[in-house]
Amino acid sequence: MYKMETKVAVVTGSNKGIGFEIVKGLCQKFEGVVYLTARNEERGRQAVKKLEDLGLRPLFHTLDVTCEQSIQEFATYIASRYCGIDVLVNNAGILDFDKSVSSYEDAKKLIDTNFLSLISISKILYPLLKNNARIINISSDWGLLSNIRKQIWLDTLVKDNLTVDEILQFVNDFLQAVKNGKTTMVSFAGHYGDYKVSKVAMSALTFVQQRQFSEQGTDISINCVHPGFVKSDMTKGMGDFTPERGARAPLYLALEAPQSQKGTFVWHDCHQVNWDD
């Protein structure tokens, strides 16, 4: 099958909220095809229809980031049609806003979705990235290192030679603590500790993977972004920004930021911050 030279952008978990608005912004400004993806096909196609009603032309494919088979099916589909992926926005994530302290099972499900899925995506989708591709990880101000207070992890996560295995140890240490009824490794007595750990881990992974890309000699950029406290279903309608405003910084990284901007933590107003202050 002939592979199209068309540029390709992919947004995970994008049938609503910030992800939906990122797809909309990409459809308006990205010179290529834009894939809106979702676990649920019906909701995904309904989201595509909303954008089509605005005169936009997103494409749809099912993608469950917690299922390696689903990621592989998507990768096979993209690889059979295009020369690679130019923009990948890792947006999929969950949070039960009604539970400030989660059970072990709930914490494991959240971390599987918000963080461990990125490991699977790295393994399966990253080989499809073009040499100058851009990856945007949707993090949070809860992804700043200041949300962690266990000294061993404060010291470990800032190491220049931090490894993915050490980040996985950090995550597993938290899950073991939850299983044992202790969540004091995160701030605020562990409130939303699983979400904070998942986003701190995402931030740390961003910096490790940027170092790996640079060592491999590729021009791929990967950055993480705090989109602001956005009103969404996940936050039960609470927040400071609309989803459209929340998409501003991710779209900046996808479309406007210099390719030399790599391995940074970007605030919702598009300026860089030190994640470990």
Rank of each mutant, 00 (worst) to 15 (best):
T156R: 12
N172E: 13
G190K: 11
N161E: 15
D173R: 08
N180D: 09
Y195M: 11
K159L: 15
V171C: 08
T156N: 08
M185P: 01
V171A: 09
A177I: 00
Y195E: 09
I152E: 11
K179S: 03
Q176P: 01
F170H: 01
L175G: 04
G193W: 04
A189P: 01
S187I: 10
N172F: 05
Q176C: 05
K179A: 02
E166F: 12
V186P: 02
L157T: 04
V178C: 03
E166N: 10
D173M: 07
N172C: 06
I152R: 13
V186M: 01
I167M: 08
T183Q: 13
F188H: 06
L162S: 08
W153L: 10
S187E: 10
K159H: 12
N180H: 15
T183L: 07
N172K: 12
F174V: 13
T184M: 01
A177P: 03
K179Q: 08
S187P: 03
L157W: 03
L168A: 09
T183F: 02
D155H: 14
Q176K: 06
D160M: 06
T183M: 15
D194H: 04
F174I: 07
L157V: 04
T163H: 05
K179V: 00
G190S: 12
G193D: 13
L175W: 02
Q151R: 13
H191F: 11
T163R: 05
V171F: 05
N180S: 14
D155Y: 09
F188D: 08
A177H: 05
K182N: 10
L168F: 06
G190Q: 07
L157K: 04
I167W: 06
V171R: 06
L168H: 12
N161I: 11
T156W: 07
K179L: 02
N161D: 13
L168K: 15
G190C: 14
V164H: 00
S187N: 09
D160H: 06
D165N: 15
D155N: 12
K179R: 02
G193E: 08
V164M: 02
H191I: 10
N161T: 13
L168W: 05
F170G: 06
L162E: 07
L162Q: 08
V158L: 14
S187C: 14
F174S: 12
L168D: 09
M185S: 13
F188E: 07
V164Q: 00
T184R: 01
V164G: 02
Q151P: 03
F188V: 03
T184P: 00
F170A: 05
Y195I: 14
G190A: 14
V171K: 06
L162D: 07
L162N: 10
T184V: 04
K182P: 00
Q151D: 14
I167T: 14
S187V: 14
I152C: 15
T156L: 08
D155W: 11
D160L: 05
V186F: 02
M185G: 07
G190R: 08
T163A: 11
Q169H: 12
V171Y: 03
M185L: 14
N180G: 15
D194V: 00
Q151L: 08
T163N: 06
F188K: 09
G181L: 01
L162T: 10
F188Y: 05
L154C: 00
W153I: 09
Q176V: 01
F174N: 13
V186Q: 02
T163E: 07
Q176T: 06
N161F: 10
